[in-house]
Design a protein around this nucleic acid. Structure first.
Length: 578
RNA sequence: GCCCUUGUAGCUCAGUUGGCAGAGCAUAUCCAUGGUAAGGAUAAGGUCAACGGUUCGAUUCCGUUCGAGGGCUCCA
């Protein structure tokens, strides 16, 4: 009878707690839940634990497992529980928060823990070769910075050794794809602590990628009925007071700068600027819907410890847009945004796509009439269903100003990333008094929807780097082809081929350095260049190139023009293969 | 911000139980080089993160500061 893996993990966490108490007597225990790939347990230790101590803990755990101790459940009264855990301040606090009659204990091998369960029957059900201590980290008691810092021990844990090994392999693969590592190896971007943490510098090759991506993005937006805006990077406090950001988003904003007598803030969002443009004219219902997009660079404060490569930064470029429409149009508009988002993701090669709908948060902090929330949510739900997209509800997960839908994609090694977000805003149209004149001559309030498809250019770059491991499709590759002469004798022909490729609009270069051919091929391959064109006597004579495709495959010899045609066709269709 | 770990050449990393600092890659120069993943030689390159302490002597030990990596309620 195999218990489910969650139960095994949770039981293993009890075993680890027991082991730690044996090795560090007098330590206090806090909580120890199962998590995605294992479990953790938080302790206040009598003596610190370091990674060198892991083998000893694992050994102790295996002893406990081998003992085959039973997990025994017992229900106790609140008073009894308090007495039992009199020496465990964290458990006491947990007990305080529990209702009489729901308190249960689990005991194995003499170790008693306050626990809801369930657990496996005996420690034998935890396979001694299917867990591995991962790391030691600090964690605040109940995640609260003002509470004591505990020591958290993380462990991987699976139902079988094979699953544990598969997971460790995945982690290894993830490390190879780490955007920071690839950014350096492929010379794509950098960040500079001394010049400001969390701010991204795009190198020439990163720039090639970005320009290709943005050009496509702009083309698609024009083709899909959007207009493109450019707005300032700073705005006076009036703007942020009116929008409400100085009230509810101040901790995400940088401090102001004084210009003349006024305070200006660097923008954390683009929306107030778009609204200024909207409000600079009177609008008829006939003008709507408006779809206004901007690659708007915003700056937000993120705590230093949370910054991470391209994934979490302090300055980033949203592929933002605001859709302003009448209530009657909202259903179609949402459906259209969702369709557009899926089209973009599929072009980029993401296949596994899922939606998460977030509804009105509990409490009375939310703005906007309940009917508006209902209409909005309905339009989101219908759009998702129309596209046949799998979705999950996140009840109460919406922002105070409106419901939203997030789209997550799975990458090549199965990790989920949120790219698209579509958010209703019932707040700013009110605050800025946005109106349009309806067919009945009355001024009415439009709906406004914020949406970002890729999220931000920086973060998307990071996700895409990790998804593709740096092997971009041709149209997004910083370089399309490197021409490698077999010997310096053919430098001239290589140069000529480079010229013809460039004239055809391909990003190509001839490698005329004084390395040998083999080294040049290796370099190009390591740089994930899609095509290596090897040229020697035969090619020079026949006007051909020997094409080596990224990955090592070799194509039959072809005329330079044939190669150009092939590459241009792949570019035109944004092919994912080469 | 806080906890743990960590900081040696542009990059990846050795090393010194305290006695003038090492390798590979990359760079520069020279030689060699005709067929699909690294040809060879030489040179240049470091205040061992910064500051302070202990010591005859500190890159090494101790302290502080700064940076980086992993964490910081997937609820007993």
């Amino acid at each position: 009878m195999s218990a489910n893996v969650e139960t095994i993990r949770h039981s293993a966490s009890h075993v680890m707690a027991e082991a730690v108490l044996r090795l560090r007597p007098g330590s206090k225990v806090a909580i120890g839940p199962a998590i995605d790939d294992g479990f953790y347990y938080d302790f206040q230790l009598s003596e610190p634990i370091r990674e060198e101590d892991f083998p000893a803990i694992e050994k102790e755990m295996r002893k406990i497992i081998a003992s085959g101790a039973k997990f025994e459940r017992r229900e106790v009264s609140k008073d009894e529980a308090k007495q039992l855990f009199a020496a465990e301040p964290f458990k006491l606090e947990l007990i305080e928060g529990l209702e009489e009659g729901t308190i249960s204990l689990y005991e194995q091998d003499g170790f008693v823990d306050l626990c809801r369960g369930p657990h496996v029957e005996s420690t034998r059900e935890i396979r001694p070769d299917s867990f591995k201590l991962r790391s030691v980290a600090g964690a605040y008691w109940r995640g609260d910075e003002k509470r004591p810092m505990l020591t958290r021990l993380y462990a991987y844990c699976f139902a079988s050794k094979a699953e544990l090994e598969a997971h460790l392999k995945l982690l290894e693969e993830a490390e190879k794809r780490d955007n920071r590592r690839l950014g350096k190896e492929l010379d794509l971007f950098s960040t500079h602590e001394e010049a400001g943490a969390g701010l991204v510098y795009w190198h020439p090759k990163g720039g090639r990628f970005r320009v290709a991506l943005e050009n496509w993005w702009r083309d698609e937006h024009y083709a899909n009925g959007y207009e493109i805006l450019f707005t300032p990077h700073i705005g006076k406090s009036w703007l942020w007071e009116t929008s409400g950001h100085l009230g509810f988003y101040k901790e995400g904003m940088y401090s102001s700068m004084k210009i003349d007598e006024d305070d200006y803030y660097i923008k954390p969002m683009n929306c107030p600027f778009h609204i200024m443009i909207y409000n600079s004219n009177a609008h008829s219902y006939r003008d709507l819907p408006l779809r206004w997009a901007e690659l708007g660079t915003v700056y937000r404060y993120e705590r230093s410890g949370t910054l991470h490569g391209l994934m979490r930064v302090r300055g980033f470029t949203q592929d933002d847009a605001h859709i302003i429409c009448t209530p009657a149009q909202i259903g179609d508009e949402i459906a259209e945004v969702l369709r557009f988002s899926l089209h973009m993701h599929r072009t980029l090669g993401f296949k596994d796509i899922k939606a998460y709908l977030a509804t009105r948060p509990a409490g009375d902090g939310a703005v906007g009439a309940p009917e508006m929330w209902d209409t909005a949510l309905e339009s989101l739900r219908k759009a998702v269903e129309k596209e046949g997209l799998a979705y999950e509800m996140d009840e109460g997960g919406g922002a105070f100003y409106g419901p939203k839908i997030d789209i997550k994609v799975k990458d090549a090694i199965g990790r989920e990333w949120q790219l698209t977000t579509i958010q209703f805003d019932f707040n700013e149209p009110e605050r800025f008094d946005m109106t349009y004149v309806d067919s009945d001559g009355q001024k009415k309030r439009p709906y406004m929807v914020h949406r970002a498809l890729l999220g931000s250019i920086e973060r998307f770059f990071g996700v895409y780097l990790e998804h593709t491991a740096g092997a971009f499709p041709l149209w997004l590759s910083p370089e399309h082809a490197v021409v490698v002469p077999v010997a310096p004798t053919f430098d001239e022909y290589a140069k000529a081929v480079e010229g013809r490729l460039r004239a055809a609009g391909l990003r190509a270069k001839a490698d005329l350095s004084d390395s040998r051919m083999n080294a040049k091929i290796r370099d190009a391959q390591n740089q994930k260049v899609p095509y290596v064109l090897v040229v020697g006597g035969r090619e020079a004579e026949e006007g051909t190139v020997a094409v080596r495709v990224r990955g090592g495959e070799q194509l039959p010899p072809m005329k330079v023009e044939a190669f150009v045609e092939r590459a241009k066709a792949k570019l035109a269709e944004k092919a994912l293969d080469l």
